[in-house]
């Protein structure tokens, strides 16, 4: 990528993400909101692969990737080094990972980073499975989604477990800010990144990002698919401050979950199975009640 492309953008096109990749859209918003005075660490995963094939990089900010599970620990080191040098004021440190690098293999390092109070914003791009390795189930895969390691079949309706509640797990560390957002509402991502970066201390932001390949959805519909997840109550948009739920995005008339599920091949098996469909509806209903979405 040529230098002039980076003059206004901290993350530029020319990378090799799939068409309709929600993660790539979200990264652009996060990076451009954070601005030039940012250092980003990155977990192994789709983002790292499609953005940074040597000798090219889509990132216009200093960026470091080392492994799958240690984005939070590397960011802890970067932040500590900046504090030691007296340079932390004015420089944002952002740790990035997919949902596997956050909720599964990266959870320990993330918890350590939150507990130790590093001034780092951790961003989880939640596409709800291990997409880089070929759509395997993660702890963040939603209930009943069919993945290559939780396939639907005669004896299976897909993933048997609900999503790991990462936003609450992070909030339980009583950190200043833990929130969800969605590519459904780019402005919301921008507002939350700005808000988070104004707060000193550890912050967590989880962004719902459709993966057309893994979700088997229309690449031109990624934003609409993400919107339906929010409008049905399946992806609650919430904010926690110091461990308490302080805001939740209201959905006055929730749509039936089938409106979200029917857009994606990973849920296709549910549409002809009234019982299984009802169970997913229950997940949405519980979310609406639990997070006060109405």
């Amino acid at each position: 990528m040529k230098k002039e492309h980076f003059q206004e953008n901290c993350y530029v096109s020319g990378h090799t993400a799939c068409a309709g990749c929600g993660q790539s859209m979200a990264v652009r918003i996060v990076m451009n909101t954070a601005g030039k005075d940012t250092i980003a660490s990155n977990a192994t995963g789709c983002l790292e692969v499609f953005s940074s094939k040597a000798p090219e990089s889509a990132f216009g900010v200093p960026w470091i990737h080392s492994l799958f599970e240690n984005s939070a620990a590397v960011a802890s080191g970067v932040e500590t080094a900046l504090v030691h040098q007296g340079k932390k004021e004015g420089i944002n440190v952002i740790a990035q990972a997919g949902d596997g690098g956050t909720a599964d293999i990266g959870l320990q390092a993330l918890s350590g980073m939150l507990e130790r109070g590093h001034d780092v914003l951790f961003v989880c791009y939640d596409n709800e499975a291990y997409m880089n390795t070929g759509i395997q189930r993660s702890g963040s895969t939603p209930f009943s989604a069919s993945t290559t390691t939780s396939p639907s079949g005669k004896h299976s309706t897909g993933n048997p477990r609900p999503k790991k509640p990462m936003v609450e797990i992070c909030a339980a560390h009583h950190i200043p800010y833990s929130a969800t957002s969605s590519i459904a509402n780019p402005k919301d991502i921008e507002i939350k990144v700005k808000k988070a970066l104004k707060i000193k201390g550890p912050k967590y932001l989880q962004i719902h990002v459709p993966c057309p390949l893994g979700w088997r959805s229309d690449p031109s519909q990624s934003i609409d698919v993400a919107k339906k997840a929010v409008e049905t109550g399946l992806y609650p948009i919430v904010e926690y401050e110091y461990g308490k739920l302080t805001k939740s995005r209201k959905i006055s008339s929730p749509k039936p979950v089938s409106e979200y599920l029917k857009l994606q091949g990973r849920f296709r098996h549910l549409l002809k199975d009234a019982k299984a469909l009802a169970e997913v509806q229950q997940v949405a209903d519980k979310n609406i009640e639990y997070y006060g979405l109405k």
Partner: peptide, 19 residues
Amino acid sequence: VNVESEHSAASCVLGSQAA
């Protein structure tokens, strides 16, 4: 940095040395 594992100890010094 009182890290939560040796994996994070090495990752942390990787990050700080890179900085």
